[in-house]
């Protein structure tokens, strides 16, 4: 009894560190990271280091490896990166969405975290990921100002990419929905789980780009009787699609089509990570 009181008191005055949701070491070990992600310093550094030597496509935020010669010639720190870089896919065909953001490339720790979330069922990983995704929205959301920090995203709704019902049953949760929930907590945008998947598609993971596009055609539809309303109760004109990984953009393009048809003017995409392409 006394011991219990003593431990309670100790816990009150000297609380034990929470564990970092990614590496599961206590946060005290390498310190809490900056920002609101709740990760330890090591992990956040590791995630930031993933972006080294990569450039992002200006249009879809996919990652591209810098050419080798460029890397070798880069002696000075302030040598400029090729700013106006657009990936092959986007230059071939302009994506339907207005913009896409992500935390980092689908590699290393970030990949591990997404795997933990999707396949090992560690739902609490979704919280730091969502917070970091929200941070991306704050950073890159267009036309934000002091008076209206959301900018063009004012009155937007967050729309998670759905899973097929069978998969949802066997996995028991939709990772995109969890991410969207976590983003919603940070950005105060409402989550509208209005999309449904029609047929059972093959898993995308081992398909090529064109196969993916074909595989997904006409996959999504608006749930029956669903209306896209923002917080003010009006028809939402802006939507933000939430997904875990952006690889070819096939999934979000399909979803964008459906949203456009249902009266959404501009669609943005935020994903936890994006693939590395050419």
């Amino acid at each position: 009894m006394l011991q219990q009181i003593w431990t309670e008191m100790k816990e009150t005055f000297f609380p034990t560190w929470q564990d970092c949701p990614f590496c599961q070491n206590p946060l005290g070990q390498s310190g809490k990271s900056w920002g609101r992600s709740g990760l330890c310093r090591n992990c956040i550094q590791e995630i930031e280091a993933l972006e080294l030597d990569l450039v992002q496509c200006q249009r879809c935020s996919k990652y591209l490896r810098l050419p080798k010669e460029f890397l070798e010639s880069r002696k000075l720190k302030d040598l400029r990166l090729p700013r106006e870089h657009i990936c092959e896919n986007c230059s071939e065909q302009e994506p339907l969405f207005q913009g896409a953001w992500n935390i980092g490339p689908y590699e290393g720790l970030l990949r591990q975290a997404i795997h933990d979330l999707k396949y090992k069922g560690r739902r609490n990983v979704a919280v730091p990921l969502g917070k970091m995704m929200a941070q991306q929205i704050w950073l890159y959301g267009p036309n934000s100002s002091l008076m209206n920090p959301w900018g063009d995203l004012y009155g937007a709704v967050l729309i998670p990419i759905p899973l097929h019902a069978d998969k949802l049953y066997s996995r028991n949760f939709n990772q995109s929905y969890l991410l969207a929930k976590s983003i919603a907590e940070e950005t105060a945008l409402p989550v509208a789980d209005v999309l449904v998947r029609k047929g059972d598609t093959e898993t995308q993971a081992h398909l090529g780009r064109y196969e993916r596009l074909r595989n997904l055609e006409g996959q999504f539809e608006l749930a029956q009787g669903a209306v896209l309303l923002n917080k003010a109760g009006q028809q939402a004109k802006v939507a933000i699609l939430v997904d875990d990984v952006y690889t070819t953009g096939a999934t979000v393009t399909e979803a964008t089509k459906v949203l456009r048809q249902s009266g959404v003017d501009s669609v943005y995409v935020v994903t936890a990570s994006a693939g590395i392409g050419v």
């Binding site: 560690r122 609490n124 949760f173």
Partner: peptide
């Protein structure tokens, strides 16, 4: 013990154990 919604039993508040999740 963590709370989550559960698709299978259809409850908003279904519990699962974080300790032996692996």
């Amino acid at each position: 013990i963590a709370v989550s919604s559960c698709v299978r039993c259809g409850r908003e508040k279904c519990y699962y154990c974080d300790g032996c999740l692996s």
